[in-house]
Design a binder for these strands. Structure first.
Lengths: 220, 220, 220, 220
DNA sequence: CATGAATGAGCATTCATTCAT
DNA sequence: AATGAATGAATGCTCATTCAT
């Protein structure tokens, strides 16, 4: 969760940390440090149990500084969730190569999910949405409109095409595109609870779901 | 979530509320009232944000009374989670009729899950395990040992038999029995976040997963 | 400002502090202790600079206890001001003996003011109204409706009668009954600022105003 | 309270705001702007509740700039009070035309008070002295020595002469010159609290006090 | 000189827990 | 056993003051 590249791949070019840095640059860095620290704390303790004091300490700034960047604890929290998940949806919406078989497309989706979400701080963000969402209706709505709805629409388009082409027999997935991510969701939850006892391989889990759909490796 | 019978079916024999009640009976009723109230509050606000005061008010007892029954807030919380989920695992472990085809057995499992968990206060309990578990390692471990591990073993035995009988071709489910409940988990999370925008039919979702496994209605 | 009888004369019969005291009694005593402590602190430092912590310490209770009796700092403040001034207005409104000459009546008023306000914690309250009132419009309005307006009406009735009887020649006082208390107000302010340098005798000051009105001692 | 000339008449010669301004000039203007802004804020909220930030914003300077001109918040506050009230006392001390009757002299005083204090930002300053004075002994002392004491001495001289001349019968005013300003003081307090409900005409109020002293209009 | 970002001490308020009744 | 008043540690947030630019 603290691995260096973290969310980088999708939004690369971060300013190199040289001695000389403009105001704006330094300010952005600070803001980023606070967000990173806050994400770690929120993930570890949940919204209510997180102390602004700890976020500050972890970010290496004074408590008051946080309030220069965020109105209050909740704003800080929402900022994190709103900022970090939306970008990948865009990637998902990009029209896929028209000739690729559905199975390959879904495999690509799994790779995207594992690489850009599961192996990233975004996993923690996603978990926060799931765990704290019920207490922050605005947040849940934002997430629904900007992530879930859009992701499901993209997924449906994919599946619809596959059905038309005869690559998929039943419409179960069309009615419930959620089934494609369900294993990913379960993996995220599992990892936070049971990895100590039995680590779970996300990729393998999600691919197993594909196997069920299309059979082991063979054609569609 | 507030329906009277709630978790009754699995552990029936609850003392009838007569005017004349022994000490022990009254005490047990009080304990139950506190647990019920606490579950509601914990579900609505999460562990950290729940106030003992509110639990007391909802349970119709004084704040101090709660401490006569539970060491502290955390003990109250853990008691809930430990008490309410274990019973259904037993049901799951009961050896299934040997001649029933796997699909029927899984359909029965879905019914059990929907009836005894999803439509019950246990749904809230399960969600609490998922959301608060990371902060309560003891709780996660207990849950793993007494619920997850056992449920997965039972599920595996079922699937193993099905494979041997030739009812299932691939071993994906055997390696990842989680895939059977995954849709149920997702439905629980979804319901807390997005039901306002798009309600999700658990049964339909879980059955869709079966369709994917076995094809629409027909045999495997 | 901390003299024992303080506001007693108007609302006497306080429960004697015996060992045996009922819940209600003890609660009332505590509330009174908090109000007394708060008045002292507010008087000394003003609303904004008063620390609840200090009030608690002075009242001999824990900080949290204050919040059992008052919603917040402002409620505590307003309670003080609303509680302590209204009673004397009632005294003022009691119809005066019809045959007493106006000068005597005004002298009686002065005595009342000096005895029940100036020599009492009410002086501090009155000062608080004057100094903090502008920041608490609700408070100012309450004070206007329940103290100032009523007091002025009572005073006017008095003066009107005197004029009819021919005891007063001009109507200056009728138009501005405030002139009767003005010296009292000035004395209150003066005492808080300059008593170190030049103590001011309220009674003498207020009586001097009467002298101006009626001449030295003799009839009007 | 925001009228342009404000306190001008007594200390006229303010630098004209031309484009070309020397360092000193610009600096003085800045200082003045800060003082003006601070007075507004202190008047509206009191010393403790006033934020340096707001003063800076209102003055159109950066927060840090204020500290270039004033050691700290308290120095800024005291500067205001010390600067703005002393000048008028000088006017008061100027020996009055020897042949003018006392009533005219007092009327002139009232005019001075209304024109140079009540209708001016000095009213706010005077109120600040009264409300905050108790918390700033140094300030109270300064004010006593430089304003009150001197004003009272001047007033006494006037009255003494009037008595010698036989224009005043009793010595009430001599013993308590405060009675002359008392109505003015009361008007200042009243205006801040009750003007919404019942505006008070200062001039009329102060003149009513004179009527009481000398009778309506006629000679002494 | 000016700026305004950063600091951190300070304070109001909350809430789990205790304990006298 | 039950109560709920009392406690005080904990925490979010503010704001006077500093100082690098």
């Amino acid at each position: 969760m603290s691995s260096a590249p973290a969310t980088a791949p999708v939004s690369p070019s971060r300013a190199r940390k040289r001695k000389v840095r403009g105001r704006a640059e330094k300010s952005a860095a600070r803001r980023a440090a606070i967000i990173a620290a806050a994400l770690d704390e929120f993930s570890a303790r949940g919204f209510a149990a997180t102390r602004i004091d700890d976020v500050a300490r972890r970010a290496g700034v004074a408590k008051g500084t946080i309030y220069l960047y965020f109105r209050d604890k909740e704003a800080l929290f929402q900022e994190i969730v709103r900022t970090m998940l939306v970008p990948i949806v865009g990637v998902l919406e990009a029209p896929p190569p028209g000739d690729m078989p559905i199975r390959k497309l879904l495999e690509a989706f799994i790779d995207l999910f594992v690489r850009e979400v599961y192996s990233t701080k975004r996993r923690a963000v996603l978990r926060l949405v799931m765990t704290e969402g019920p207490r922050f209706p605005k947040l849940a709505e934002f997430h629904y409109r900007n992530v879930v709805e859009r992701a499901m629409a993209a997924m449906r388009a994919l599946i619809e095409r596959a059905i038309k082409r005869g690559e998929l027999e039943h419409d179960a997935l069309l009615r419930f595109p959620q089934l494609v991510v369900a294993p990913g969701i379960v993996a995220i939850i599992w990892s936070g609870l049971f990895d100590r006892f039995a680590p779970l391989d996300v990729t393998a889990l999600m691919r197993a779901q594909l196997e069920i759909l299309f059979g082991k490796e063979g054609a569609s």
